[in-house]
Design a protein around this nucleic acid. Sequence first.
DNA 1: CTTCTTGTTACTGA
DNA 2: ATCAGTAACAAGAA
Length: 286
Amino acid sequence: MPELPEVETVRRDLERYVLGKKIFGIEIGKEKIVKGLGVEEFKRYLKGRSFLKIGRRGKLLIFDLKESKKTLLVHLKMTGQLIYRFSKGTVGGGHTQKTGKLPGKYSHIILKFKDGSELFFNDLRQFGYWKLVSKKELEQILGRFGIEPLTKGFNWKGFKKLILGRKRQVKAFLLDQKMIAGIGNIYADEICFRTGVLPDRRIDSMDEKIIKKLYKEIENVLAEAVDKRGTTISDFVDLSGKSGGYIKKLKVYGREKKKCIVCKKGMIKKVKVAGRGTRFCPICQV
DNA sequence: CTTCTTGTTACTGA
DNA sequence: ATCAGTAACAAGAA
């Protein structure tokens, strides 16, 4: 599922490929993907405009439009994909099963640029959305996010203040977007593993040393996953349709009933924590 | 057939 | 304020 590293990978690709390109046409196959404005109004607003900057907050993509009072927000949720094609028949890095043909059964929005290139929004489960928001709405939405990891604002002092005194299970804390923005189920499990804590361990049972380890592993895991261009479990691909390389680095996610590759003794277990499927090594994590 | 998958919001209740 | 739990959304895999 797209979490911070996957969304960041897409964001970087978008900056490289679609920045400054004029939107020539828009096709919308599934109206429910567009939130807020009606579909016709939405199309009319975007037509003729271009992207000035592409940002990200947590798992949310933020498209600044040139000479525009509104901002375009795109959320991939669980199965959303953005795929760019220079011209018919050629996708940046070649096809995979993950993208299939373009447009495909799940291509719900297509942006067509003046040079003939196209940006496809595919979403099997249709949970993702595109929304034009005013500056005021944008401010409100962004205000709900917690600290952005991988920025200077994410420092030990601030983290300590945020986490100390809390009683929740550490995984529930990691998943809470109002605390830290961008961590989802895969990286929450990987961060817990690398920290050496059980995902259901309560924060108030952790001493400062282990909290500091947690802080560092949040940074380590997310930074390495960005470097490897994300994790592909089932649907995630980058703008060229390519899978992410962090799948090779996963220690617990998707490895249930297999032997732990670190201690080589424990069997990876799967339970439910914070309402999510959760994997851990009963030996490495305490 | 049932159960599970997950990002987010809404809601209830403690 | 803090936190846990559940339903809803949707479609496919097992």
